[in-house]
C-alpha cells in the first residue's frame, strides 16, 4: 500500500470568469482534467509529461491535497486525498513550486527545522532531521546563511531537501529541474535516482523536458488537454511507433510546409519547431527512404531552403508528437480554456 498511487476517473473543472471590460464578466467553466485513471506502483519513478496547461499541475495539486477534485478519486499510500487528506500530507513529500516554497529571510537550517515542526517532529528530532538532510545534500556550507543569498540551484536543492523532511515513501516532484543550469539539473536527477534506488521511494516526477523523462523514469504518462493520451514504459511507448521513420529537416522552412508535407500519403505526422534559432521540421512517415525524395521535392516547391536532413531514432518527444500532433514547446493553456 505504501508508495502506491491509485487514480480513478479524476476530473477537475475550474469555475472562472471571462472578463469583458470594467464591469462585465461571463461565468466560464474550464475543464482541466477529464476523467484520468492510472496507477503508480511502489518503488517506481513515474513521469508525468505534458506541455504547460496540459493539466499536470492540476493533477499534482489534487494529489498533494492543495485542490479538491470535482469528481473521481485518488489514493496515495492507501489514503484518500479528500477523506484522509492529513494522512496523505503526512506520508507524501512534495516539491511543487521550486524555490518559491521557502522562507528567504530564514536560513536553510531554520527552514528545515520549522517545516519539521509542521510535520509534528519533536524539537530534538526536527533539529536532527534537518542536520541529516543538510549532510545528505551537502548543504553544510550554506545551512546557516539566509536563503536569499543562495543561487537558484542551491535554493532548488534546499527545496528538494524540504520535501524529504517527513522521510515519506512517496515523493511528488513538480518540474524540480526548472530554472536549473545543466550541471545542477544533472546533480538533482542523480539524487532523485539515488533516493529511488537506495531507499525504494516511489517518485512522481513531472517535467516538460522529454530527455529528462527518458533517462530518469521507469514509466511515463502523457497528458494533454486534461486527458491521458498514453501510459507505459519508455521503450514500450517508443516501440509503439515501431514502423514509423523520423526525419528531421533543418533550414529556412516556411510554416505552410507542415500542411504541404502532411498531404503526402506516407506521412503520418509533421511539426515545425526551432533548434538554436534554426527551423526544424520533424516528419513521421511509414516508409522513410521512399518518402524522402517526395519531401525534398515538396519543400522545394514551397520555397524552403534545406540545410540538413537527419534520419533519427524514435525519441519520447516523437511519441509525444505522434500522440498530440504538437511539440512540447507549444502551450496548451489557452486552448484548454477555449475547449469547454
Amino acid at each position: 500500500m505504501l508508495g502506491t498511487v491509485v487514480i480513478e476517473n479524476l476530473s477537475k473543472t475550474y469555475h472562472t470568469k471571462q472578463r469583458k471590460g470594467l464591469f462585465k464578466s461571463i461565468p466560464r467553466d474550464v475543464e482541466s482534467l477529464k476523467g484520468i485513471s492510472l496507477e503508480v506502483e511502489e518503488g517506481e519513478i513515474f513521469g508525468l509529461l505534458g506541455p504547460n496547461g496540459a493539466g499536470k499541475t492540476t493533477m499534482i495539486k489534487i494529489l498533494s491535497t492543495l485542490l479538491l477534485p470535482s469528481s473521481g478519486s485518488a489514493r496515495l499510500n492507501g489514503y484518500d486525498v479528500v477523506a484522509d487528506d492529513n494522512a496523505v500530507r503526512a506520508t507524501v513529500g512534495c516539491m511543487l513550486m521550486g524555490d518559491r516554497g521557502l522562507y528567504w529571510k530564514l536560513t536553510g537550517r531554520e527552514n528545515l527545522i520549522y517545516f519539521g515542526a509542521l510535520y509534528h517532529y519533536s524539537p530534538a528530532d526536527r533539529k536532527r532531521r534537518a542536520q541529516e538532510i543538510i549532510d545528505m545534500l551537502e548543504l553544510g556550507d550554506l545551512a546557516d546563511r539566509s536563503v536569499e543569498t543562495y543561487s537558484s540551484g542551491q535554493k532548488m536543492k534546499l527545496a528538494f531537501g524540504k520535501s524529504l523532511i517527513n522521510d515519506a515513501p512517496l515523493l511528488i516532484l513538480d518540474e524540480p529541474t526548472n530554472t536549473l543550469d545543466v550541471p545542477s539539473a544533472s546533480e538533482l536527477r542523480a539524487i532523485v535516482r539515488q533516493k529511488n534506488q537506495q531507499e525504494g521511494k516511489t517518485i512522481i516526477y513531472t517535467t516538460h523536458i522529454m530527455a529528462e523523462a527518458e533517462t530518469l523514469c521507469d514509466r511515463v504518462a502523457i497528458i494533454d488537454y486534461g486527458q491521458l493520451l498514453a501510459i507505459g514504459r519508455v521503450p514500450e511507448l517508443k516501440a509503439s511507433l515501431g514502423r514509423e521513420h523520423i526525419t528531421r529537416i533543418a533550414g529556412v522552412i516556411p510554416s505552410k510546409a507542415v500542411e504541404a508535407v502532411k498531404a503526402l500519403p506516407a506521412v503520418s505526422q509533421a511539426t515545425l519547431g526551432s533548434v538554436d534559432g534554426v527551423a526544424e521540421l520533424t516528419v513521421m512517415s511509414h516508409n522513410g527512404a521512399d518518402t524522402l525524395a517526395r519531401l525534398i521535392e515538396v519543400l522545394g516547391q514551397i520555397g524552403a531552403t534545406i540545410q540538413k536532413i537527419t534520419p533519427q531514432d524514435v525519441t519520447l518527444e516523437d511519441v509525444f508528437i505522434a500522440k498530440t500532433g504538437r511539440t512540447l514547446a507549444e502551450n496548451t493553456a489557452v486552448e484548454t480554456g477555449a475547449k469547454k
Binding site: 489514503y79 484522509d84 503526512a90 527545522i113 515542526a117 509542521l118 524539537p123 536532527r128 517527513n166
Partner: peptide, 26 residues
C-alpha cells in the same frame, strides 16, 4: 527517527502547541 505511532497526520495536542510556537519563533 520515528514518526508518532498513530494514524499519519493525527497529532497530539502537545505536538500542535509545539508547531504553533515553532511558528511564533519563525
Amino acid at each position: 527517527i520515528s514518526l508518532p505511532a498513530r494514524k499519519p497526520g493525527k497529532a497530539s495536542p502537545a505536538t500542535l502547541v509545539s508547531a504553533t510556537f515553532a511558528t511564533v519563533r519563525a
